[in-house]
Design a binder for these strands. Structure first.
Length: 299
DNA sequence: GGTAGACCTGGACGC
DNA sequence: GCGTCCAGGTCTACC
């Protein structure tokens, strides 16, 4: 079965997929031959399907959306669910025009509009993105990849016909495990109690993470909600705010400190304040300006 | 409000 | 092969 989902222009699937490292975290994957974004997903009906997402070019040649293929046939409701999830994952209705208007004047960002950059690849649920963001903290990227793969392979729902391919585990599934198992089998280390507490709070209904996706809360309040989650500090909250389409904060990690040091401080050590000051002029767009800054000439 | 130390893992390194 | 050191954010206790 094949669905077509339109995007607000400018749009480029490869720009979204290449926006950050999420595509390398299971169950996301990229087809090495075609570049298609693939992912196993469980629908509300319980059916587990493999999604294959490819650029859908308009007659003029410019990207105008994506096609989504599944081997299984879908009911109308399932098709709508897939459309909604893909729309969220790729940010298809996002309008970055105000940012592009500013970025055009900055040589380090000027090509973003032409390249249709600015959207960040997201997971279908905020729960998955919070878990993955926790898995990025205080570890090398290879560790994040390993931990995400472990969660999917050990707790995800299998794809019928190809059970090695699995979904990201639901909060219910993770809530049913325990800290020691997450430490010993998924090798989450000290992050295990954070992920477990998050899963149990979401599974019990005590925490409605998904409601934050379209929240009207001011960014400052939204940030407080995220910081209240165990394992989510300043960097993680800023990263999650970017995923939610709020760019008021810069996710300052060790890489950000290094790049800002080289770009503006001659290699002298800098702190969080210097990174924030470097992008202060971008106001509500400072996270995007930082994320897509062209560091290619930076020492 | 600011800071030091602990948390946990895997990889790099020296022996 | 083994032991040691280090990188990577967040939390907690303490000042």
């Amino acid at each position: 079965m094949r669905l077509t989902v339109n995007a607000r222009p400018p749009f480029s699937l490869s720009a979204v997929v290449g926006s950050h490292g999420w595509v390398r975290l299971a169950p996301f994957a990229r087809d090495p031959d075609t570049g298609a974004l693939v992912r196993v997903e469980q629908l509300d009906s319980g059916q587990v399907v493999a999604l294959r997402i490819e650029e859908e070019a308009d007659p003029g040649g410019a990207g105008s959306g994506v096609s989504v293929a599944t081997e299984a046939s879908l009911t109308e409701a399932e098709g709508q669910e897939v459309t909604d999830k893909v729309g969220w994952m790729l940010g298809l209705d996002q309008d970055l025009t105000p940012f592009y208007d500013l970025a055009r004047e900055e040589p380090k960002l000027a090509r973003m509009e032409e390249r249709a950059q600015g959207r960040l690849l997201r997971s279908p649920t905020l729960f998955e993105d919070v878990v993955k963001t926790i898995l990025t903290t205080n570890t090398a990227w290879s560790g994040t990849i390993r931990m995400a793969e472990a969660l999917v392979s050990q707790y995800g729902a299998p794809l019928p016909g190809d059970p090695k391919r699995r979904t990201f585990p639901t909060p219910d599934r993770l809530a049913g495990t325990d800290e020691e198992t997450l430490r010993a089998q998924a090798r989450l280390g000290y992050r295990a109690p954070y992920v477990l507490a998050l899963a149990r709070d979401v599974a019990s209904g005590e925490l409605d993470l998904e409601a934050l996706k379209d929240s009207d809360l001011p960014t400052v309040e939204l940030r407080k909600r995220l910081l209240a989650l165990k394992g989510v500090g300043g960097y993680a909250a800023a990263n999650l705010l970017m995923i939610l389409g709020r760019y008021d904060y810069v996710p300052v990690d060790s890489w950000a400190l290094k790049m800002v040091s080289r770009e503006w401080y001659g290699g002298e050590p800098v702190g969080q304040a210097e990174v924030e000051a470097a992008f202060e002029r971008w106001g509500e767009w400072k996270g995007l300006a930082y994320w897509f800054w062209d560091w290619s000439d930076t020492g």
